[in-house]
């Protein structure tokens, strides 16, 4: 059955997303060297996961094939990003 989620949960997720946005904006003033992009992208990933899981209802999908579609899609994207960057980063090693 279609799961109906409470407005309270949506407002909570929204509040967390707004806080994380404020946090990542504030952290951009701090120079953490090579860690800066890592922290910024980690926060983005937490925010993105919240959007996908709660706003896009991925957490509540009852059709298993749909879950497979989503997981396969992100897995494919990670192949694109990780394998290409592995190539670029290791080119200078020889």
């Amino acid at each position: 059955m279609e799961k109906v989620i409470s407005a309270k949960l949506y407002f909570t997720v929204w509040a967390i997303l707004m806080c994380l946005t404020a946090a990542t904006a504030a952290l951009s003033y701090v120079n953490m060297g090579a860690l800066s992009p890592v922290v910024a992208l980690l926060i983005a990933t937490v925010k993105g996961s919240l959007v996908v899981l709660f706003f896009m209802h991925a957490k509540y999908i009852d059709v298993k094939t749909t879950v497979l579609v989503i997981v396969a899609g992100f897995f494919w994207l990670s192949i694109l990003l990780l394998m290409t960057m592995t190539d670029y980063i290791t080119r200078a090693w020889s």
């Binding site: 990542t24 904006a25 951009s28 120079n31 800066s36 992208l41 925010k47 993105g48």
Partner: peptide, 21 residues
């Protein structure tokens, strides 16, 4: 929400990385 998701990644990549410099 997908449009929002794309922006969630565009924001740090374009605006935040390098901002502290």
């Amino acid at each position: 929400h997908f449009v929002d998701l794309i922006w969630i990644y565009l924001y740090p990549l374009l605006y935040l990385i390098g901002h502290h410099h």
